[in-house]
């Protein structure tokens, strides 16, 4: 079974890759230009600003200082970061568990239904974020739908506080990020070979074993991509956490945002942002190195 799980062709990849000719460079050029202009340049500016001072309005004054970093290495900001990462992690795991069966079902549906189902996953998010979130607030509040249903059914005698709790934060995050897990997993499920799955069942594997030993390993690239697309953006996400969580536990995105607004300290915000980028890039680089060494 392990042999089945390894992505076919992975070993050939080294030989398969070609050295780029002039044409390949030309095709890559737009992406390179885009990266240099709109990703590298802003990042360089960000790092430069993080070593600057600021004036009373929070604007940048170009005097070199490392004070922003001295200040950033404080237990307070680390705690904020840990809370954010923890929520992002929970969100990713739950999205994976909730989303996988959905992605699988869509990916195995008759081909002509797939695009429609995929779109059905996305359409709820073509509404305004604020209305969606306020709808959730109405549903979860003490006088909301869930509480009145539970009260009527006699499960509870007093309204339960659902809103402005960690539960509400995670629910809000899962709701908003679920499609970003379902879609990439769907892409991997969609290309599964029917014969492979049937073979697994034919070999006498029960559904659980067929799943854990054949199907999940085969769709691992999609799961990994989905995890990336959910985990990474949800670290810095804060509108949902403040609206549904009541704002009692600030996240790193909110703290950085406030440096640019009410805190009026752009350089410090830039320093926190640079550290966030560094930690993230380092973690990603280590994982990839680890994976390549194992491969």
């Amino acid at each position: 079974m392990a042999g089945l799980a390894a992505a076919p062709g992975a070993n050939d990849a080294q030989n398969y890759r070609r050295a780029p000719g002039l044409f390949a460079w030309l095709v890559l050029a737009p992406l390179l230009a885009w990266l240099v202009l709109f990703v590298v340049a802003p990042t360089v500016m960000l790092v430069a600003v993080s070593f600057a001072e600021r004036d009373a309005l929070g604007r940048i004054v170009w005097i070199f200082t490392t004070e922003n970093y001295v200040r950033a290495f404080d237990w307070l900001w680390l705690k904020v970061l840990l809370v954010s990462v923890w929520y992002a992690f929970l969100t990713t795991v739950i999205c994976m568990a909730v989303g996988y069966p959905v992605a699988y079902t869509i990916g195995r549906a008759p081909p002509r239904w797939r695009s429609l189902l995929l779109m059905l996953v996305m359409v709820p998010f073509w509404t305004s974020f604020l209305i969606r979130t306020y709808a959730w607030i109405t549903i979860l509040s003490k006088e909301g739908l869930v509480n009145s249903m539970l009260l009527n059914a006699g499960f509870i005698s007093q309204p339960v506080a659902l809103l402005y709790t960690p539960f509400a934060i995670v629910l809000g995050l899962v709701y908003n990020f679920l499609p970003f897990m379902i879609l990439p997993i769907y892409t991997s499920v969609e290309k599964l070979d029917n014969a492979m799955i049937e073979a697994a069942y034919d070999l006498g594997a029960g559904p659980l074993r067929a799943f854990s030993q054949v199907i999940i390993p085969l769709t691992r690239p999609g799961i990994a991509a989905g995890a990336m697309l959910v985990f990474v953006p949800s670290i810095a996400m804060f509108a949902i956490t403040t609206l549904m969580g009541g704002g009692t536990n600030p996240t790193i995105g909110e703290v950085i945002f406030k440096q640019f607004t009410s805190g009026r300290n752009q350089p410090f915000g830039a320093a926190l942002g640079t550290l966030l980028l560094l930690i993230f890039i380092l973690a990603l680089w280590l994982t990839r190195k680890h994976r390549e060494e194992n491969a």
């Binding site: 990266l35 990703v39 590298v40 802003p42 990042t43 960000l46 990336m228 697309l229 990474v232 953006p233 670290i235 810095a236 790193i252 995105g253 950085i256 945002f257 640019f260 607004t261 915000g269 830039a270 942002g273 966030l276 980028l277 993230f280 890039i281 990603l284």
Partner: peptide, 12 residues
């Protein structure tokens, strides 16, 4: 590099 826009907080 490709991941930078994903992790960079929106305000930055």
């Amino acid at each position: 590099l490709i991941f930078i826009p994903m992790v960079m907080p929106e305000v930055l």
